[in-house]
Computed example of a mutant assay.
Amino acid sequence: MRTWRLPARTARLRLTVLYGGMFLLSGVGLLAITNLVGLGGTRVSRSAPAGVPPVEPATLAAATERIARLQAQLADAHAAQTRQLLVGSAVALVVMGVVSVVLGRVVAGRVLRPLRMIITATRRITADNLDERLAVRGPDDEVKDLADTIDGLLERLENAFAAQRRFVADASHELRTPLATMRASLDVALAKPEPVPEQTAALAHRLRAELDQIDRLLAGLLTLARARHGSPPGRTALPLGRLAAAALDDRAAGLAAKELTVDASGVAGGAWTRGDPTLLTRMVDNVIDNAVTHNHRGGWIRVAATDGAAAELVVETGGPVLDQAQVDRLARPFQRLGADRTGSGDGSGLGLSIVAAVAAAHGGALRLRARPDGGLAVTVSLPPAEVPAEVPAEVPA
């Protein structure tokens, strides 16, 4: 059953009620004054005119009767005039009510027109075009002050995003260089002809593993920063299904080591979308890595790519029943379910947060669902794209 809802209490509605009420009260006052003046000026005088000579009784009786008839006719005419005036006033009041609402809405629209222009321009400005400004012209009133304040805020946001981009560019070089130096020093120390003590070699291998972990963590942080605050993604047409198939092929050794069963029959190279090839490839790789890493030996993975209102990549895994409240937090950085529930404690905790950031940067979304039978279902939805006549070079064969 369709329920009737009140209109939203917008500023235009409130101004319409205010202006319409003012116009309506003005009309009511005007009609009231008109009625008072019209009704007050129709009183009948019953006194005889001065200077009229007295008449005979017979003639007086006839005159009295005639006067009575004239007074009755005059009273009837006065009553009819009064009724007509009241009906006309009621009709005029209804018309004034409608006109008051229309005039109130028109006046409210003209008053709020600069604000609507500011709202439209502000919604059009995103993280990709922070260099745009409202630049409202007009008198120095409250509306122009509001627009100038928003322009100042946009300028500060642009500077903040530019600082983020500079940090990403600088950190990519400044932080990776010392890691590469330390890794090379360990390799040189282990490659010396003199025999290396077993304890020293074990320590060096452990340090090398930690350096690799730090390198992966740094790469994840840089990718996350680039997806959230980097330059706008490119617009190359790519199929999510084919990217997922390539990711599964690259991880064939890990799948075999864990004895995982993979069902990729629903991939078939579908789910075309547009975006940055590097970021989309990293996004799909992270989804597949999450399915492989956080899976039990002998488990299963099901991958499907579908076209429709959105290009969707769905990756499902088996396992124990998970808590949906905890699953919802997995898209945040450094959030894990724990080795006792996912089968592995490896990973930096950035995989799904990178997936969420890349999907959001391309106008999509990440959905995580705890399967009722156990395990996790990861769905990435992106805006669809038409299949190009020529497959781009970035698309895996």
Rank of each mutant, 00 (worst) to 15 (best):
A257H: 10
A227N: 08
R226L: 09
A252D: 12
I214F: 05
T223R: 13
D249V: 11
T223I: 11
G220L: 00
R216D: 10
L255V: 15
A209Y: 00
L217Y: 00
Q213R: 15
T223M: 14
P233C: 11
A253F: 09
T223S: 14
L222R: 00
R206V: 01
G234D: 13
L243M: 12
G241T: 09
L203D: 10
S231C: 00
A256M: 07
Q213Y: 08
L218P: 00
E259L: 11
L203Y: 04
L240M: 15
L203M: 07
R208T: 12
L218S: 04
E259P: 01
A246D: 13
R216L: 14
L260K: 09
L255I: 15
G220A: 08
L222M: 11
L218C: 03
R226S: 15
A247M: 06
A227P: 08
L203E: 14
H229W: 14
A209P: 01
D250I: 00
L224C: 01
R242P: 00
T236H: 06
A209Q: 14
A237K: 08
A225H: 05
D250F: 04
E259S: 15
L207N: 04
L260M: 09
R206C: 02
A252T: 15
P239V: 10
L222T: 06
A202Y: 01
L207F: 07
R228S: 14
L221T: 05
R251A: 10
L243K: 03
A253K: 10
L221I: 12
P232V: 09
G230Y: 05
A252E: 10
L218K: 01
R242L: 13
L221W: 03
E259Q: 14
G234Y: 02
L207W: 03
A247G: 09
R228Y: 01
E259A: 13
L248M: 06
L207D: 05
L224I: 00
A257M: 07
P233S: 12
A257T: 13
G241I: 11
A256D: 13
A209I: 00
A244R: 02
A227G: 06
R216S: 11
L240Q: 07
A219H: 09
G254H: 12
A219C: 02
D215P: 01
D215E: 15
T200P: 00
L224K: 02
L221F: 04
A204D: 06
L221Q: 13
A219D: 14
R216Q: 15
A246N: 05
D212W: 01
A244V: 10
T236E: 15
R208V: 06
A204T: 03
D249R: 14
T236A: 13
A256Q: 09
I214V: 13
A225R: 11
I214N: 05
H205Y: 09
A244M: 03
E210N: 08
L248W: 02
L224E: 02
A253P: 02
A257D: 14
I214E: 03
A256I: 03
L211K: 01
I214Q: 14
G234I: 04
R235H: 12
D215G: 14
G241V: 05
R206F: 08
L211G: 05
A252L: 07
A237Y: 02
A219W: 02
A244C: 09
P232N: 04
I214W: 02
L221V: 11
